[in-house]
Design a binder for these strands. Structure first.
Ligand SMILES: [Zn+2]
Length: 299
DNA sequence: CGAATTTGACCCGCGC
DNA sequence: GCGCGGGTCAAATTCG
């Protein structure tokens, strides 16, 4: 996520402008002679800055986890909503017209954040009305999800909040990457399956195909507390490694309709901005990321 | 030690 | 029937 991504609709203080000591610290450097007191002062300031960096990085990590879980929840909710909508239309349809078999609903959902680095996704669209009438198969709710991820290795994992058990992996004909088959861990009471395969054209996109509908609750962790004040969780972890956030830009321009993405962003943002704690925390997170960036490119 | 993953075998539909 | 390609099973293996 880059700052313009959120900065459009969220009223955040993106500019950190923290530590006015920086000017004083810069003034110590004019003239190529730095005396001992200046060194001491610089050392002390550096210590403070490092401590602040750790604190903010830690906070940034927590907020990123929060955002990830939020996106998972959003995705699960959206998928559930799609299921309800399709079921509803199916009921109406079966009462009115039995003959017209509805083509299975390809609901293309967007996911925003997964796996350490958060990125956007794009919906490929084959919204063809090919009302195929195979067997009386109206129950298979197939939904396709395109996940933008940067893990170029063979992890092939899509964190959507549910727990899956892998039961197969095959190489397919026209794709160098294998396809993984998963079942819901609540098998066989929950018949949901999903297939995950890296996209053939862009290897940084995972294509997850969900099939079925969960009949149990979302086992997502509800214990991460959203209402905590952003200044309260300052548990300074000395071993906290700074979050290595890979900064990158969305370059899938031609097949990523930015309008839909903006719409989703606005939808999520409007539901988020009602919580002032969250906005403040997000601002802090962005500041932390900004700090991290500058520190990385400085070292 | 039980659960989850791996991975080759197996199955099944489809075109020839 | 045969081969092929996608999907699943299950024994072996690894993992927590
Ligand atoms: Zn399930």
């Amino acid at each position: 996520m880059d700052s313009t991504w959120v900065g459009t609709s969220l009223d955040l203080n993106v500019n950190p402008l923290w530590h006015k000591e920086e000017v004083g610290l810069k003034r110590e450097f004019d003239g190529d002679y730095v005396d001992f007191e200046g060194k001491l002062l610089i050392k002390r300031e550096t210590g403070n800055l490092v401590e602040e960096l750790h604190r903010i990085s830690n906070e940034n990590k927590k907020l990123t986890e929060m955002l990830t879980t939020l996106c998972e929840n959003y995705n699960a909710l959206h998928s559930h909503y799609m299921d309800l909508v399709s079921k509803n239309s199916e009921n109406e349809l079966s009462q009115s017209k039995k003959r017209k078999t509805e083509c299975e609903e390809y609901s293309n959902i967007m996911i925003n954040s997964l796996n350490g680095n958060t990125e956007s996704s794009s919906t490929d669209e084959d919204h063809h009305q090919s009302c195929q009438r195979p067997k009386d198969n109206v129950k298979t709710h197939v939904s396709r999800i395109y996940v933008r991820t940067e893990s170029a290795d063979k992890s092939l994992i899509v964190k959507d909040g549910y727990q899956w058990r892998k039961y197969g992996q095959k190489v397919t004909r026209d794709n160098p990457s294998p396809r993984a088959y998963f079942k819901c861990s609540f098998a066989p009471s929950c018949p949901v399956k999903k297939k995950v395969q890296r996209s053939a054209e862009d290897p940084s996109i995972l294509v997850a195909t969900y099939e079925g509908e969960h009949n149990h609750m979302h086992p997502s962790r509800p214990e991460l507390l959203l209402g905590s004040s952003p200044t309260s969780n300052l548990t300074s972890d000395p071993t906290a490694a700074p979050m290595r956030s890979t900064v990158k830009s969305v370059q899938k321009s031609e097949e990523a309709p930015a309008a839909i993405q903006q719409l989703l962003v606005q939808k999520m943002a409007s539901s988020l901005t009602r919580d002032p704690n969250f906005t403040a925390a997000l601002a802090a997170a962005i500041s932390g990321r900004y700090l991290d960036q500058t520190r990385i490119e400085k070292c």
